[in-house]
Design a protein around this nucleic acid. Structure first.
Lengths: 208, 208
DNA sequence: TGTTGTGAATCTCTTCACAGCT
DNA sequence: AGCTGTGAAGAGATTCACAACA
């Protein structure tokens, strides 16, 4: 149905729509949304086609309706639970950002192998010991895992998560994870992104 | 010349090549590299075409030669300097990961508006006050900026960085940055990635 | 045999362009 | 006039497939 890329952009649109809503804007044109989302008007319209929601030539799209429609695609009606593994600086940053932001997608448990970090509550999220990982995933019906452990520990964590029934992983560790083909993995590779930026920063200077 | 995507993959290949080198492997076939990089053999060969380096049907590619060739594309001979702005959990995570990892791409200064965090050295990187941002960028000839400040502060930081001559930005803040068209921006949008993972985690379960 | 290097084919994503609407 | 919705065209990236080679 909707491609990987479209799903990503719908998420981005949603953030923009929330801020438009907060600023009291009731309607939005595709070209406005495009400007705010680094895209073209045609692309926005294409993406919005996957939602049921239709726009009007006179007022554009209704902001509330779009938010509703995006939620219908992106959010699970019954909600989805997420576990974060690795409470280092990165893990804490992700926790701090996410807690309470999406009612339908909440980080319900964090794990670390360091007992110092465990048995506390960080950003409203209980921190649990690593050896209870599989058990907790099953008990709390957690479907998504965020891996913020060092590279050397990532595969083992992924194995435990997958075995416990997680169907999607957001992986910050700079290694390829081997998981069953039914599990969706998205990598966030900061080194790659930074090297890309450095490369194109140079190109611009050299080229046109 | 080389596309955005190819440059990204070259960076990924490099990491894999380093680990192959560390494990004493002298040669590698395209299909091996593909397996380690989530790609196809044909794709790897295409990507490697942009390097001068050529492989042999009998032994595949020479690992040392590939590393050398990738460096010739990705690294600036004279090196590039990076500044990180925003020493929160996320900023510290990025600092900790990067320090000393790439001789040709080093974070030479970090900035924060909180005086508590300033005048210290984190992970071998001097932390400076925000009001010296522009001045330091110019003095140290910094070409790349990493933005790890909250969303509300990101645009202002970007403005200062661009004005001081930075040509590339790696942006973690969930906002669109407005910069001159000569500046390359790469966004890392964790919310988007997580929502994508959650979406496809559900699809797999529902679909095939 | 099994690999590389690459033209050609294919697939996917994006943009164009315009009918239909208000 | 200026927008949406969308078929069709275009651009870009990936994969195929095979000649050349060791």
């Amino acid at each position: 149905m909707a491609s990987d890329k479209t799903i990503g952009r719908l998420s981005r649109y949603r953030r923009i729509l929330y801020s438009l809503q907060a600023s009291g804007k009731a309607n939005v044109y595709s070209h406005e949304l495009a400007r705010l989302a680094r895209g073209t008007a045609a692309q926005v319209r294409r993406d919005l086609m996957v939602l049921g929601c239709t726009g009007s030539p006179t007022h554009g799209y209704d902001v509330d309706c779009l938010i509703e429609s995006v939620a219908q695609v992106l959010d699970a009606p019954e909600g989805q639970r997420v576990a974060l593994v690795g409470i280092g600086n990165l893990g804490r940053a992700v926790l701090a950002y996410f807690v309470g932001r999406r009612p339908k997608l909440s980080i319900v448990a964090a794990f670390d192998k360091d007992p110092q970090k465990v048995e506390r509550v960080t950003h409203g999220c209980p921190c649990l010991p690593m050896d209870s990982l599989g058990k907790t995933i099953r008990e709390k019906c957690i479907e998504v895992g965020i891996i913020t452990v060092p590279a050397g520990a990532a595969q083992e964590v992924a194995d435990t998560l997958c075995e416990a029934g997680v169907m999607g992983l957001l992986n910050f560790a700079p290694v390829r994870l081997w998981v069953p083909s039914t599990v969706y993995v998205e990598d966030i590779d900061v080194t790659m992104s930074l090297e890309k930026v450095a490369f194109f920063a140079r190109q611009v200077k050299a080229g046109a």
